[in-house]
Computed example of a mutant assay.
Amino acid sequence: MGSFSLMHWGVVLLLVLLLFGAGKLPSVMGDLAKGVKSFKAGMKDETASETAVLPDTAGGPGARS
């Protein structure tokens, strides 16, 4: 189980071209890029919501009793 050589990558590229075709490959890669951007945006939104300031419920100087 060594690292991949240039020949291995050539075979992989040939198989990808055979499976998807040269015309369809740019649209597949575009869809992949959109998915990655959407994932990153979702992770950023999740992080922002976790660090959002929660309202004070401890009964500070303006709290009603």
Results as ranks from 00 to 15, higher is better:
54 L>Q: 12
2 G>W: 05
53 V>W: 05
33 A>N: 06
12 V>W: 06
24 K>C: 05
16 V>W: 05
22 A>D: 04
37 K>D: 08
23 G>H: 06
3 S>T: 07
10 G>K: 10
11 V>L: 08
26 P>K: 09
33 A>G: 03
40 K>S: 13
7 M>L: 01
58 A>P: 00
45 D>G: 11
28 V>A: 06
49 S>A: 03
38 S>D: 08
2 G>I: 10
34 K>N: 09
3 S>W: 11
33 A>R: 14
27 S>A: 13
7 M>V: 08
15 L>T: 11
60 G>K: 04
19 L>Y: 12
27 S>W: 02
6 L>C: 06
50 E>V: 03
61 P>A: 04
21 G>P: 02
4 F>P: 01
49 S>H: 00
17 L>S: 09
24 K>E: 07
14 L>K: 13
16 V>S: 03
9 W>H: 05
47 T>M: 07
39 F>G: 02
62 G>N: 10
38 S>I: 03
20 F>V: 04
65 S>F: 13
4 F>V: 12
10 G>N: 07
52 A>Q: 07
3 S>N: 14
39 F>A: 14
40 K>R: 14
22 A>V: 01
36 V>H: 02
1 M>K: 04
6 L>R: 09
55 P>E: 07
63 A>H: 15
21 G>N: 01
39 F>C: 09
2 G>H: 04
60 G>N: 14
